[in-house]
Design a protein around this nucleic acid. Structure first.
Length: 153
DNA sequence: GCCAACGTTGGC
DNA sequence: GCCAACGTTGGC
């Protein structure tokens, strides 16, 4: 089972939104590297839910992959802010996965804390200039992060 | 295929 | 709100 990290701006879609809705299609990814990672996701994979572009950037919860990569319909919708004129029905270009809520952390693991952990050196999230919104979490990093996680009951 | 210009991300 | 870093686009 693989582990991934996905970023979301809490103003747009937060861990609480996912908790309330239980399932959500992760649409709007418009970066090829991020898309390619989504294509590698398998059913049941774990996702670390990360809040970005906010006061306290942090890992705030977990989800599981409940549907593997399939075309993201927002790329065909001219009304959508994610519309992509280069996407066609034959070649959608963009894909989404479906996430299912797994848990919310009692205490978010902040980016500041993550950066201070020497075991995470090399992890894309804490690397300077890294802007990837979807990234794999290699086993040793997952192990380290998992040890810090405490879930709400 | 190079690379300058532009747009976006996201921490601070 | 600033700006560094990065990705994408498009002219050549």
């Amino acid at each position: 089972m693989a582990v991934w990290l996905m970023k979301s701006e809490p103003d747009e879609f937060s861990i609480n939104d996912l908790k309330h809705r239980q399932r959500e299609n992760w649409d709007g990814v418009r970066n090829f590297q991020a898309r390619n990672f989504m294509r590698q996701m398998a059913l049941g994979d774990t996702v670390l839910f990360y809040h970005s572009s906010c006061k306290v950037p942090a890992i705030v919860g977990t989800a599981t992959i409940s549907k593997t990569a399939h075309p993201d319909p927002s790329c065909w919708n001219p009304e959508s802010k994610y519309y992509d004129a280069k996407s066609t029905l034959e070649q959608p270009r963009w894909e989404q996965v479906e996430l299912s809520f797994a848990g919310k952390l009692k205490r978010p693991i902040t980016l500041t804390v993550l950066k201070a952990m020497p075991e995470l050196e090399g992890f894309a999230l804490v690397q300077k200039g890294s802007r990837l919104s979807v990234m794999p979490v290699a086993e040793p990093y997952w192990h380290t992060i998992q040890a810090k996680m405490l879930f709400e009951s």
